[in-house]
């Protein structure tokens, strides 16, 4: 009963905040409306019994949206939304696509022959899900993750040799050299 109620509340938040993303004129508001929607989705995943996945979704989306706000603002005119602007482009086509996709997904959810539960739910559904998704490739994926991570760190190391701050601007360097010749 409580679970049902939570499900519908979270679903309403997710859809409502998702719609708000396109209603906000401000990039900051749009980004954080998206975060609210995604966090509600994380809550739904927790309701499914996948605690770990749900909380990780909230964690990752929080960090990602905080950074994405920076990029959204960087690339948009009128970042603070003080002048009216619209997040909607090609309204009619987009609406058609959205309605189509929604219909497809809803039809799939309602019409698919869902299997009956055989046996009991595992003690740790996250673990079971991970094993059934990754299976024998778990070690490979873990190693791959570490390699990717090490690559990121290495790239950062290479990039910091000439960081953004400590390098004198070309103009100033030029001026210093000219100054040196004159003086």
């Amino acid at each position: 009963m409580l679970g049902d109620l939570l499900f519908w509340v979270l679903a309403a938040v997710a859809v409502g905040a998702g719609g708000l993303v396109f209603g906000c004129a401000s990039m900051a508001r749009a980004t954080y409306a998206l975060l609210a929607a995604l966090s509600a989705v994380g809550g739904e995943v927790v309701l499914l019994g996948l605690d770990y996945l749900g909380v990780v979704i909230v964690l990752m989306m929080t960090l990602e949206m905080a950074l994405m706000a920076v990029f959204m603002i960087m690339f948009m005119m009128s970042p603070s939304g003080l002048s009216p602007m619209s997040m909607r482009h090609n309204t009619r086509g987009a609406a058609a696509i959205c309605a189509g996709v929604f219909g497809l997904l809803a039809a799939g959810a309602l019409l698919a022959p869902w299997p009956e539960r055989a046996g009991r739910a595992p003690a740790d559904p996250t673990r079971a899900l991970g094993l059934s998704l990754m299976g024998p490739q778990m070690l490979t994926m873990t190693v791959l993750g570490m390699v990717l991570f090490a690559t990121i760190v290495a790239v950062v190391v290479l990039a910091t040799r000439h960081g953004r701050y400590d390098r004198p601007p070309a103009g100033a360097r030029e001026a210093a050299r000219r100054g040196g010749e004159v003086g």
Binding site: Y32, L35, V55, V58, L59, T62, L63, A66
Partner: peptide
Amino acid sequence: VVWFNAMAALAWP
């Protein structure tokens, strides 16, 4: 542990 981490991450926004 992950819960704590997720809540602390809310400091970012």
